[in-house]
């Protein structure tokens, strides 16, 4: 029990407190690619603090609307409790497995879409429609990769998957799954070339266009936490090495791996143009078929 509470606090710390730091480093890196100096590394903290005190505009007589950004934030924090972050065990792994994780992450997207829809701005609706289409095609890629791991490990629990992959070493099926998840990450965390749901230059922030003050702070924070959670999932389940068995070493190693991955995401983000939504949908449908090959290899045990 003390162990569970301990790593729960660790996960929440990484996902909520450290995530703006990762975002700040990513911004710095992006500035370097653009030959700019860029904001200080802790700029995202300043942003959140500033937004928290700004005036909060609410849509008129729309019930429930003011709770929705809070629900986004809560669900993303709950999602953080169901992924392993360096410890090889998800804190609440005994309460929900990888499929639960997939759905709680979908719930994050759903509450974000409802937040947008409650605002009655057509740009927000366009953003919501795009976000749903992206989810429709990215989620299967994610699920197929996790099912590949589950078939190999004969269990849907993250702990079992990590253990199995750590001890049995790389296999064709898992390499295919790894590539698929890596290609899906960019869309999952809402970065270029797949940020069409926000698309500042085109639909003026899309999903977030009507949000302001503390609500916008919560939504931005949700996006940052999501990035860290997905990066953690990727480096834990699909690249579980190296592991020492000593948490004092494993957690810093994990954070370093996440940092590298966030850096890669940021570089891809800064050198790519935005795709159109129909191009993105086609791209991911092709990726779905590619990732199915991983399942085929997993079935024959390769």
């Amino acid at each position: 029990m003390r162990f569970v509470i301990g790593i729960s606090i660790l996960n929440l710390f990484v996902a909520l407190v450290l995530s703006p730091l990762f975002e700040g480093l990513a911004r710095k890196l992006k500035a370097l690619v653009h030959s700019r100096i860029g904001p200080p590394v802790i700029q995202p903290y300043y942003d959140l603090l500033k937004l928290a005190g700004k005036e909060d505009l609410q849509p008129k007589d729309m019930p429930f609307a003011r709770f929705l950004p809070g629900i986004c934030f809560v669900t993303v924090a709950v999602a953080a409790l169901f992924v392993p972050m360096g410890t090889g065990r998800a804190p609440l792994g005994t309460a929900g497995d990888s499929m639960f994780f997939v759905y709680i992450v979908t719930l994050v997207a759903v509450s974000m879409i409802m937040t947008a829809a409650a605002s009655e701005n057509p740009f927000a609706y366009i953003g919501a429609s795009r976000e749903v289409m992206l989810q429709l095609t990215v989620e299967p890629v994610m699920v197929i990769a996790l099912v590949t791991a589950a078939l190999n490990a004969r269990s849907f629990g993250f702990g079992d998957m990590v253990d199995w992959y750590y001890f049995s070493g790389p296999s064709i099926s898992m390499i295919i799954a790894t590539i698929s998840v890596f290609l899906a990450l960019q869309a999952q965390v809402g970065k270029l070339p797949f940020d069409m749901a926000e698309a500042e230059t085109e639909i003026a922030g899309g999903l977030f266009i009507e949000q302001s003050g503390p609500k916008y702070a919560l939504l931005r924070w949700t996006m940052m936490a999501k990035q860290v959670i997905f990066a953690s999932l990727f480096v834990q389940v699909f690249i579980p090495w190296p592991r020492t068995g000593n948490l004092a070493w494993d957690v810093p190693i994990h954070l370093a791996k996440v940092l590298v991955l966030v850096a890669i995401i940021s570089v891809i983000d800064s050198v790519n143009p935005r795709l159109r939504i129909d191009q993105a949908v086609r791209y991911y449908l092709i990726l779905v078929f590619f990732s199915l090959a991983g399942i085929a290899f997993a079935v024959i045990g390769a």
Partner: peptide, 12 residues
Amino acid sequence: ISRAGVARKREA
């Protein structure tokens, strides 16, 4: 957290 900044609220 959402109340921490004591932001003013306005319906618009």
